[in-house]
């Protein structure tokens, strides 16, 4: 059992920069990333925290 692939934000990251780095070939990468990280969508006013887990792949099928 391994976790879904995830990263931590780097200094100065917001979701757009992180998405551009992690998903460079994906259109609307930031929106896609947000849809995979609903824990971040729920508190968008705070922005990314340095300790946030950001999943870079979709949730497993149920």
């Amino acid at each position: 059992m391994t976790a879904r692939q995830f990263v931590f934000p780097q200094a100065g990251d917001d979701l757009a920069t992180l998405a551009a780095r992690e998903l460079p070939d994906l259109a609307d990468a930031a929106q896609q990333l947000l849809s995979w990280n609903l824990h971040l969508a729920a508190r968008r006013s705070t922005g990314l925290l340095p300790s946030d887990v950001v999943f870079t792949e979709p949730p497993p099928a149920r």
């Binding site: 931590f8 925290l49 340095p50 300790s51």
Partner: peptide
């Protein structure tokens, strides 16, 4: 409703 200080730590700090 602000995250507590520990949540502002980057992985390098921990």
């Amino acid at each position: 409703y602000r995250p507590v200080p520990s949540r502002w730590a980057a992985p390098a700090e921990l």
